[in-house]
């Protein structure tokens, strides 16, 4: 009876850390992938109800989303311009940072999802969000800072529950 109760009480933290890994992993992977997305405008014939070209010969512009390595953009241009004006963010640093940001989010997200060196992966992901926070503080994006703080708090909770971590590819 007592053993069964202990097993049930251990299940909660295990599921909790699993959920946190899932959320943080998916969040990071998809955010990283989106940095390789762009939209293009296509011109296609307007179709009638039967699926045939409209009798007017009308052509419509349709916006289509796509992904490619060439479309990579670490952060929006408007934000990049603001960072460029910050004396505490030298261009040498930001250029390298932009180059790895998307790839780092994808790699850390996959590692957290699969349970690859979970503690280290979670910690690095937390540091990445802290680094993003630095930039947002400098350009006074307080809402973004608060948003990232939630991410970091979730990572901290996940790290504190790591002793209950199961379903991992590596032990640590």
């Amino acid at each position: 009876m007592t053993e069964s109760t202990n097993t049930q009480s251990d299940c909660g933290p295990t599921l909790g850390v699993l959920l946190l890994r899932a959320w943080l992993g998916v969040r990071a992977v998809l955010t990283g992938i989106e940095k390789f997305s762009d939209t293009r405008t296509l011109q296609v014939p307007l179709l009638d109800a039967a699926g045939k070209p409209d009798s007017s010969g009308a052509v419509v512009e349709v916006t289509q989303k796509f992904y490619s390595l060439h479309s990579y953009h670490a952060i929006p241009d408007s934000m990049k311009d603001k960072f460029a004006q910050e004396p505490l963010l030298p261009s040498l640093l930001t250029t390298s940072y932009y180059a790895v940001l998307g790839w780092a989010l994808i790699a850390l997200g996959i590692a957290v999802l699969l349970g690859l060196w979970t503690r280290a992966s979670l910690f690095l992901m937390g540091l990445l969000y802290v680094s993003l926070t630095v930039g947002l503080i400098l350009i006074k994006q307080d809402a973004g800072v608060a948003w990232l703080a939630i991410h970091v708090a979730l990572i901290a909770v996940a790290l504190s529950l790591c002793r209950h971590n199961r379903f991992t590819l590596t032990r640590s």
Binding site: L46, D54, S55, S56, G57, A58, V59
Partner: peptide
Amino acid sequence: NPRYLVARNR
């Protein structure tokens, strides 16, 4: 003008 034709007819 196809723009006007679509506006009116569709």
